[in-house]
């Protein structure tokens, strides 16, 4: 097993079997490269919070990380970030609860290529934090 996603100074988000590690690392790299790194990191950290994991930030600024549990009301977040975090939370809890109004709101802030990348990024880190929890249980 190897840790994937870690820098030299950060713990990995999840341990991955050696045989999966190269393609997993390449997918994670593609996820980061196709997304706004700060936005995706906010979603990643929030997904961790929802399942009880306190992930170290990789790109999100400290003031936003500190306010992330209060994102609906805290002025540290833009309208686009709120729309993405709202989608992120609904995706994690039950993707069937994402409404047409929420989808329309996302389209106000993001292009379709950006939404395709964001959806994939949220799905990726949703899986990562759940697998990490399962590894510890």
């Amino acid at each position: 097993m190897v840790g994937v996603g870690a820098s030299d100074t950060q713990a990995p988000d999840v341990e991955v079997p050696d045989r999966l590690s190269p393609t997993f690392a390449a997918l994670e790299q593609a996820v980061w490269e196709t997304n706004d790194a700060v936005l995706l990191d906010l979603c990643r950290i929030r997904l961790g919070q929802l399942v009880g994991r306190d992930l170290a930030p990789r790109h999100a600024p400290p003031e936003q990380v500190a306010a992330l549990r209060r994102w609906p009301a805290d002025p540290a977040f833009s309208a686009a970030e709120r729309a993405a975090l709202d989608f992120c939370e609904h995706y994690a809890v039950d993707a069937r609860t994402v409404t047409d109004e929420q989808a329309a709101g996302l389209h106000e802030h993001f292009s379709e290529p950006a939404l395709a990348a964001l959806t994939t990024g949220i799905a990726f880190f949703d899986a990562v934090v759940r697998v990490a929890n399962a590894q510890e249980s």
Partner: peptide, 20 residues
């Protein structure tokens, strides 16, 4: 599909998925 908006990302996903 929506994945065709991000072909390099989709290719990376498919390589991982195939290995899985």
């Amino acid at each position: 599909s929506l994945f065709d908006h991000q072909p390099e990302l989709f290719a990376a996903f498919n390589r991982f998925y195939g290995t899985l």
